[in-house]
C-alpha cells in the first residue's frame, strides 16, 4: 500500500501514471500546470486509486486543484 504518505502517493503517480511529480512543489502545483495532466490521466488516476483501495468518485476528484488535494480525498 503506497498511499500512506504524500511522498508515497507522489511516487505512485510518477511510477504508475508516468507523470512528473519530482520536487516538493508538484504536490501543490495547479493540476492544469502539471505536465501531461488531462482528462484521460484523470481516468487513470481514478483507476489507480481504486486499485489501491482508496476509491474517490470522479465528481469529487474534479473538485481537486492539486495532487495534495487528491491525496487528501484519497485518505478520507
Amino acid at each position: 500500500m503506497h498511499i500512506t504518505s504524500l511522498e508515497g502517493f507522489l511516487s505512485l503517480v510518477r511510477d504508475e501514471l508516468g507523470l512528473d511529480t519530482a520536487g516538493v512543489e508538484a504536490a501543490d502545483a495547479d493540476l492544469a500546470d502539471l505536465p501531461g495532466w488531462d482528462s484521460l490521466n484523470l481516468l487513470r488516476m481514478v483507476v489507480l486509486l481504486e486499485e489501491h483501495g482508496r476509491p474517490v468518485p470522479v465528481h469529487r476528484l474534479l473538485q481537486a486543484r492539486t495532487l495534495q488535494e487528491i491525496y487528501t480525498f484519497a485518505k478520507e
Binding site: 482528462s39 484523470l42 481516468l43 481514478v46 481504486e50 470522479v58 465528481h59
Partner: peptide, 11 residues
Amino acid sequence: LGASEEWIDLF
C-alpha cells in the same frame, strides 16, 4: 476496463 462509469458518462 476496470475503469470508471462516472468518468465515461462525463467525458
